[in-house]
Amino acid sequence: MYEWKTIAGKKQPYFIHSDADFLSAAGIYVPVKTGDDWNVRFAIITREARDASGEIHDRMPAFLTPDLWDAWLSPTELEDPAETLDMLLSSSEQVASTITT
Rank of each mutant, 00 (worst) to 15 (best):
Q12D: 14
R41F: 07
N39G: 06
T100Y: 12
L23H: 02
I16C: 08
A26Q: 10
Y14L: 02
T76P: 00
V95T: 06
R50E: 14
I28T: 09
A71Y: 11
S92N: 14
H17A: 09
I99V: 14
P66S: 02
V32N: 14
F42R: 00
V95R: 02
H57R: 11
H57D: 11
A96S: 06
W69C: 12
L88W: 13
H17G: 03
W72V: 05
S97L: 08
P75F: 09
S24W: 09
V40P: 02
T84P: 01
V95N: 01
R59T: 02
T100K: 15
A25I: 01
D37F: 14
E93D: 08
I44T: 13
D21L: 07
D86S: 02
E93I: 03
A71R: 15
T98P: 07
E83I: 01
R50K: 15
W72Q: 12
T34D: 15
G27I: 03
A71F: 13
E55L: 03
A49W: 10
L64M: 03
T76A: 04
G54A: 08
M87Q: 01
S74G: 13
H57N: 07
F63N: 01
S90E: 05
E55W: 05
G35L: 00
L73F: 13
D67N: 15
P31F: 11
R47Y: 03
E83Y: 02
T76C: 00
